[in-house]
């Protein structure tokens, strides 16, 4: 099995949000992410949100670092290790996946002061989303899944 691409191993390959399984919305300057596959949702603080918003449309780690350095008025060297490590984490959570093409940079609104990015993880949705798992289905003659026959004494 090929190793999964990680930003720290190749900072020139673009990554993007794992749509449509991952959805996001920004409010109060912070991003909330939901992974509809796992039922996990994530609360990103402002620096983490800035990284996500730069990366989600398909950008290489190097380009994300450059864009953030411009937004925060600091050097790329100063941010690189922290930003790439956070991108690695987003990939580990499968929130980012490799992209085919590089998207243009995003202009962020006021970003405030830089700090190490923080991401809170919540599992509240897992029970809701993982109900009724689909496996081992039985098909009728036309190819439609049908309820499995109940044992003869079921419901007796």
């Amino acid at each position: 099995m090929p190793a999964r691409a990680v930003p720290s191993a190749d900072t020139t390959t673009p990554f993007r949000a794992a749509r449509p399984d991952v959805i996001d919305e920004t409010f109060e300057g912070e991003v909330t992410l939901i992974d509809l596959r796992s039922g996990m949702f994530y609360g990103l603080d402002a620096p983490a949100s800035a990284i996500w918003l730069q990366a989600r449309e398909g950008r290489s780690p190097a380009a994300v670092v450059d864009a953030l350095a411009g937004s925060y008025g600091t050097s790329a060297e100063e941010l690189a290790a922290t930003v790439v490590a956070f991108l690695d984490r987003l990939c580990e959570e499968q929130l980012l996946v490799p992209a085919e093409t590089e998207a243009p940079p995003v202009t962020l609104a006021e970003v405030g002061a830089w700090a190490d990015p923080q991401m809170q993880c919540f599992s509240d949705m897992q029970e809701l989303l993982l109900l009724d798992p689909v496996h081992d289905i039985e098909l009728d003659a036309n190819g439609w899944p049908i309820p499995r026959a109940q044992p003869a004494d079921a419901g007796a």
Binding site: P20, E25, F27, E30, I34, L36, F41, F122, L129
Partner: peptide, 28 residues
């Protein structure tokens, strides 16, 4: 609102099939 949205997220988004991004946007 941040506390509120995060507290009701699990019961509001992803509950019905399809178009979950739109539902999240509406909640926000």
């Amino acid at each position: 609102r941040t506390t509120f949205v995060r507290s009701v997220l699990a019961g509001t988004v992803g509950v019905f099939p399809g178009m979950s991004q739109e539902t999240l946007r509406l909640l926000v």
